[in-house]
Amino acid sequence: MPTAIAFSEYGGPDVLRPLETAEAVAGPGEVRVRVRAAGVNPVDVKLRRGDFAGTVAVTFPQRLGNEFAGVIDQVGAGVTGRAVGEEVLGFTAMAAYAEVLTVPADSVTAKPAGLSWEVAGALSAVGQTASNALRELKVGDGDTLLVHAAAGGVGTVAVQLARRLGARVIGTASERNHEYLRSLGAEPVVYGEGLAERVRALAPEGVDVVLDAVGSAAVDASLELVADRTRIGTTVDQKAADEHGIVRLRGARSAELLAELAGLAAAGDLVLPLTAVHPLTAAAEAHREVETGHVRGKVVLTVG
């Protein structure tokens, strides 16, 4: 029987356990995928800990994982444009840490030959979040963009896409990641107390737009720097969005957008470094790494 990773109670990484699942069958409009890689994201950690208890419905044993790459081995009725044996990457909801899964056919796109399984499996969440955020915040040529947590997954992609749009990018990160941010085209600045003053020193002419993937104090600094709150967006802090009227960034996922991002990554025009790659059975260790908050790029689980 295929194996997935699930948890039957909220808690630390050790609550993650292998779960034997019934062999899935692709229904109408679906494809079945033999997973080769699945990305691990901070939202997975928060779900496992119970941070969203009462707001996000879970059914124990609850699986995890929102992005994957693998090989289609079954095509459901009515599906066109997809074939058995095709290599794909795609997105789902709380199901990707698995050997096998079924998803709607329009939730996958072809994996370019030059894209590794590991990057393909880790691209969807951060790539689409970053791209949608820049679009919603109307980032464009000539803008000065401040990215909080610029060395993380969303930040890494956002920096590169914003530079392609012609924006100047300032990114917050620990000092050990400053050279990395420079390699992506960003101007690094240390986060923490006094951040607004350090950003002003780098950009005395001002900051136009902020993309936040940290919340709390990062939002406070953003409010000091940008007057137009419709150009301050957060991917993580709903409370700040409610209190201050800034934008809570979500964004719709689509196979079309994912295909565009995969093409850029395969061509070497979008870099997504991997902090660590673990087998599926080491999901707990992957969660420990993500939980440190110091991941550069992504952590990935592999199958087979």
Rank of each mutant, 00 (worst) to 15 (best):
T109N: 13
T109Y: 06
A110V: 06
A110E: 11
A110D: 03
A110F: 00
A110R: 10
K111D: 05
K111F: 04
K111A: 09
P112G: 15
P112N: 15
P112E: 15
A113Y: 05
A113G: 13
A113L: 11
A113R: 11
G114S: 13
G114C: 11
G114N: 14
L115P: 06
L115R: 03
L115C: 07
L115T: 10
S116G: 13
S116T: 12
S116R: 04
W117M: 08
W117L: 11
W117C: 08
W117Q: 09
W117Y: 08
E118R: 05
E118G: 04
V119W: 02
V119Q: 06
A120W: 06
A120E: 09
A120Q: 11
A120S: 11
A120L: 02
G121H: 12
G121T: 12
G121R: 10
G121C: 13
G121Y: 10
A122L: 03
A122Q: 05
A122P: 01
A122G: 12
A122V: 03
L123P: 04
L123R: 02
L123A: 04
L123D: 06
S124L: 05
S124Y: 03
S124A: 15
A125S: 02
A125D: 00
A125F: 01
V126I: 08
V126D: 06
V126S: 08
G127L: 12
G127F: 08
G127I: 09
G127S: 13
Q128T: 15
Q128A: 12
Q128I: 14
Q128D: 13
Q128C: 11
Q128E: 15
Q128F: 11
T129P: 05
T129S: 14
T129Q: 05
T129F: 05
T129A: 14
T129V: 06
A130N: 07
A130C: 10
S131M: 09
S131E: 10
S131N: 14
N132A: 15
N132S: 15
N132W: 12
N132Y: 11
N132V: 12
A133K: 04
A133C: 09
A133I: 04
L134P: 08
L134K: 12
L134T: 13
L134C: 12
L134I: 14
L134W: 09
R135H: 09
R135K: 08
R135V: 10
R135Q: 10
R135Y: 02
E136Q: 15
E136N: 07
L137F: 13
L137N: 10
L137C: 03
L137W: 04
L137A: 09
L137R: 06
L137V: 13
K138I: 01
K138R: 14
K138F: 00
K138Y: 01
V139T: 14
V139N: 10
V139Y: 05
V139K: 08
G140K: 01
G140A: 04
G140L: 00
G140D: 00
D141S: 14
D141F: 11
G142A: 07
G142P: 02
G142H: 03
G142S: 07
G142D: 08
G142L: 03
D143N: 06
D143F: 00
T144N: 01
T144L: 00
T144R: 04
T144Y: 00
T144M: 00
T144G: 02
L145W: 03
L145Q: 01
L145I: 05
L146T: 04
L146C: 02
V147G: 01
V147Y: 00
V147D: 01
V147Q: 00
